[in-house]
Design a protein around this nucleic acid. Structure first.
Lengths: 260, 260
DNA sequence: CATCCAAATTGGTCTAGACCAATCTAAGGG
DNA sequence: CCCTTAGATTGGTCTAGACCAATTTGGATG
C-alpha cells in the first residue's frame, strides 16, 4: 500500500547551477552554500516532490556526498525536507512557523506579516536582586538595565515585555535604541549574538493594569513566556518576561523524537 | 578575560571503557552506542567540566573521528554538552525539561516525577468531519476513534485530552487500552511510532464544564496544546487537543539560532 | 610582573571512497 | 490480473585521512 504522503517523482531535475557552486558568499562554508542553493530550488518545487538522489546532487554541486548530506541534514532539521531510507528525499510541508528558532519580537512579527513597533514604558538602571543575579551570573547588586515596553504589531498592542540586561554588557544604551529590535542593537553595536535561550511557557490571566496596556478586558487569557538568553560565548545576557494577549497570539512548532 | 562559564579542566579523563565499544546493544549504530557511553560518562562529571578532545575520544572508543563527532553533535543538539572551536567540549547545564522532544503525557509526567493515570470519559467511533479528514489525510466520512479523557498526575487532574485516531490504523483498540500511555499501545501493538508532531500552543480560560472536570474555578487560565502527530512513515496518525490547567503546568524548552 | 607573539591544541569542514538496510521497480509465474 | 522475487536505487553509516580557524598556552621580551 502506498503512503498517503504525496510523492511526485520528477525525473532528472537540475537543481544545481551550471557547474559547481557559484559562491553565494565566499564567507560561508560549502555546506552552508549548498543549503542556500537547495532552499532556492525547493521554493520552485511542490510539496511531495522527490529531490534528486544525494549522489547526483553532490556531483551537480561539485562537493562530496558527506558535505551534501550535512546540508540536507540541516534542511531536514528545519523541516524543509523529509528523508526516507531506500526511498528518497522529499519536499516537506512548509513549516507554519519556526517558533523553535530563537527570534525576537520584531522578527517573529515580520515572519507573520506584521510590522512591529514599540512603546517604551520604563528605561532605568537598577541593581540586581537575588533571582536576577543568579540567572544572569552576576554579583548581587550589580547594575542592570531594566526595560519595560508594549510591543505593537500593525498598531495592535500584542505583548508586554520586561527585560533585564547586565549594564556592563551594553554601555551607553539609551531608551532611543529600543524603538525597534533589541536583538539588532545587541548584535551590531555590542557584538552580542543571542544564539540560545531557555524558555518557560505558561498561561495566566491579565491583571487590570496589564489589561489596560493591552487593550483587553480584565481577566482575559494571556500567554507568558519567560526567557533567559545566552550569547555566542554562552554568557547569559538577557532575562525577559513577555505577556502576550491570548486572543491574538499562539506559538507553533514542530517537535521530534529520536528513536523508538 | 575569562568567560563567566565555569570550565574545569580535568586532565586525561578516561571516558571509554577498557578498549573500544563493549556493545550496549548490537542493534544500535556505532554513533548511537558512543552516545550511550558518553551520556553515562557525563552523569559522573560536573557542569563546566571539559571533555577529552575529539581525537582522543575517538581513539578510546575505537571509532573514527567523524563517527565520534556524529555522537557529540547529537548530544549538543539535546543540550548535554556545548562546544567551542579552539577551546573544547564542555558539560552543559542540565536541561530542565525536554519539551522540545515529542513526549506523551505519561512520559512528560514521569520526567517531572509524577505518576500519570487517566480517567476515560468518552471512547467512540465517529466519522471524520472536514477538518479532521484534511489534517489526518483521510476521505471525509472515514471512521475515527474519538477519545476524551482526564489526565491525572499524582491524583491531581492536570489536563483534558481529546484525541482522534484513524480507525483503520488501530483495529481492535478498546477503552481498556487507554488507562495509561497511548503511545506505548500504538508502538507495541500497532508498530506505530510517533516521531514528529506539529504543535500550536495558546492560552485560554476554562469553561464551566472544563473547570468542573479539572477541579478549578471557572475562568481559570489554561494552556491549550493542539497537536498533529506523524509516525515513522510520515503519516499523520494522531490529532490531539489538550487543555492543561494554567496554575500547575508550564512548558520548558531551549531554542536556538543557527548563525548571525 | 605584565605584555605580546608563536606554537600547540581543538573543534569545524571536507574528501573519496566503502558497505549496509530499507525501499522501489520490473520481470516472471501463477 | 495479482503476487512473488531478484536486482537496482537510495539514504544511513563508517573510515582514514587532510586542512582551516579559533582559542589556549607558554615562552620571550620589555
Amino acid at each position: 500500500m502506498n503512503s498517503p504522503v504525496v510523492r511526485r517523482t520528477v525525473p532528472s531535475v537540475k537543481i544545481a547551477s551550471e557547474d559547481g557552486l557559484e559562491a553565494v558568499d565566499p564567507e560561508l562554508s560549502k555546506h552552508e552554500q549548498v543549503k542556500v542553493h537547495l532552499v532556492a530550488a525547493l521554493a520552485k518545487m511542490q510539496v511531495g516532490d522527490k529531490l534528486p538522489p544525494e549522489r547526483e546532487l553532490a556531483e551537480q554541486f561539485g562537493v562530496s556526498r558527506m558535505t551534501l548530506r550535512q546540508a540536507i541534514a540541516g534542511l531536514a532539521r528545519l523541516g524543509y525536507v523529509s528523508r526516507a531510507p531506500g526511498a528518497g528525499t522529499f519536499v516537506a510541508q512548509p513549516i507554519v512557523s519556526k517558533s523553535s528558532e530563537l527570534t525576537g519580537f520584531s522578527e517573529d512579527m515580520a515572519a507573520r506579516g506584521f510590522t512591529a513597533s514599540s512603546r517604551l514604558l520604563v528605561f532605568e538602571y537598577v541593581s540586581a536582586d537575588a533571582a536576577a543575579s543568579r540567572e544572569l551570573m552576576l554579583s548581587v547588586g550589580e547594575m542592570l538595565v531594566h526595560i519595560e515596553r508594549v510591543r505593537v504589531a500593525d498598531g495592535l498592542p500584542m505583548c508586554l515585555e520586561r527585560i533585564d540586561l547586565p549594564a556592563r554588557y551594553v554601555p551607553g544604551l539609551t531608551g532611543d535604541d529600543l524603538n525597534f529590535s533589541l536583538y539588532d542593537v545587541l548584535a551590531t553595536r555590542y557584538g552580542i549574538k543571542l544564539l540560545r535561550a531557555e524558555q518557560s511557557i505558561s498561561a495566566s490571566v491579565v491583571t487590570e493594569d496589564q489589561a489596560t496596556l493591552l487593550g483587553v478586558p480584565t481577566r482575559s487569557s494571556a500567554l507568558i513566556i519567560e526567557r533567559l538568553g545566552f550569547d555566542q560565548k554562552h554568557r547569559p545576557v538577557e532575562r525577559a518576561r513577555s505577556i502576550y494577549r491570548g486572543d491574538r497570539y499562539d506559538l507553533r512548532n514542530t517537535v521530534h523524537r529520536d528513536a523508538g
